[in-house]
Design a protein around this nucleic acid. Structure first.
Length: 272
DNA sequence: CGATATTCCTGAGTGC
DNA sequence: TGCACTCAGGAATATC
């Protein structure tokens, strides 16, 4: 499942397309999370790709006439093909370019999205409500401490709220909390400033490490070149129920928070 | 305002 | 081998 590092790796993989001109748009399956706009073939005809940006887990492809917003959802994958090939099952959307290259979206579970925004994508309803980027300096201990003052929910649920900070998905939420020594069930507002600073630091370190590793390669993720993604990351707690904690050997436990599996070590992570 | 459940979807895994 | 079943989850949305 693409988390922020995977999305960023995907964006970088697509970057060679900047400057290319769209020759054809193919919509095979418009029923994604939201319908793929039917006007895209006309709107993007002969448009030059000017820039590929990322905001949270959204990839933004900027053209002179507006921006395409792409989200990979759970199982989405964007590939850069050097030439057109026969589409396979779940290949829902293509951007063909005049030089023969193709950007292809494959998404079996169809939680992903292809949307159209104007020339100011940051004012799009989905993007305008997002919190800061986790690696931005505005996301710091002081910010987190203020933001969670009124939140009684478990800290794990709260750091996954994209209105507070973007890009912390289920895997890295569990991992960051383990590294910060904080129990995932701790009521958010009971964290003190020092703990917030530690947690922010661990979120940044965790995401940066994954980014450097080229994105973790869970079963659904493939890099933009279409090859299976890089290497499986070593996690401290994610998916390790019953296995020994890498620090203290205590069996890792799992619980459900907000309908999400949450992994932790009861010894290394203190509840408040 | 915040907290929580619901919703979309298909492939993978499991038990019989 | 195949069937029935559960599970996985990003994040908007509805509901309280």
């Amino acid at each position: 499942m693409p988390e922020l590092p995977e999305v960023e790796v995907t964006r970088r993989g697509l970057e060679p397309l900047v400057g290319a001109v769209v020759s054809r748009v193919v919509i095979r399956q418009p029923a994604m999370r939201w319908p793929i706009p039917g006007h895209l073939p006309q709107t993007l005809d002969s448009a030059r790709l000017l820039e590929l940006k990322r905001r949270g887990k959204y990839i933004i492809a900027r053209f002179e006439c507006g921006c395409l917003i792409l989200h990979l959802g759970m199982s989405g994958r964007l590939c850069l093909l050097e030439q057109d090939t026969a589409p396979e099952k779940h290949d829902h959307f293509d951007l063909h370019f005049a030089d023969g290259r193709v950007m292809r979206l494959r998404d079996p579970r169809r939680f992903g999205a292809v949307l159209w925004a104007g020339t100011q994508p940051e004012s799009h309803a989905l993007l305008s409500v997002l919190g800061p980027e986790p690696l931005d300096e505005t996301f710091n201990g002081d910010f987190l401490h203020r933001a969670i003052r009124s939140r009684s929910s478990p800290i794990k649920t709260v750091i996954m709220d994209s209105h507070l900070v973007v890009g912390v998905g289920n895997i890295y939420a569990s991992e960051s909390l383990f590294r910060a020594g904080i129990h995932p069930q701790t009521p958010a507002r009971s964290l003190d400033l020092q703990q917030c600073e530690r947690l922010v630091q661990e979120i940044k370190l965790t995401l940066q490490a994954a980014l450097q590793a080229g994105g973790s390669s869970l079963r659904d993720f493939f890099g933009a070149d279409g090859n299976p993604g890089y290497f499986q990351q070593t996690y401290f707690v994610y998916g390790r129920t019953g296995e020994a904690c890498r620090v203290c050997q205590t069996p890792i436990e799992v619980l459900r928070l907000g309908q999400r599996s949450t992994f932790y070590c009861r010894v290394c992570q203190k509840a408040i």
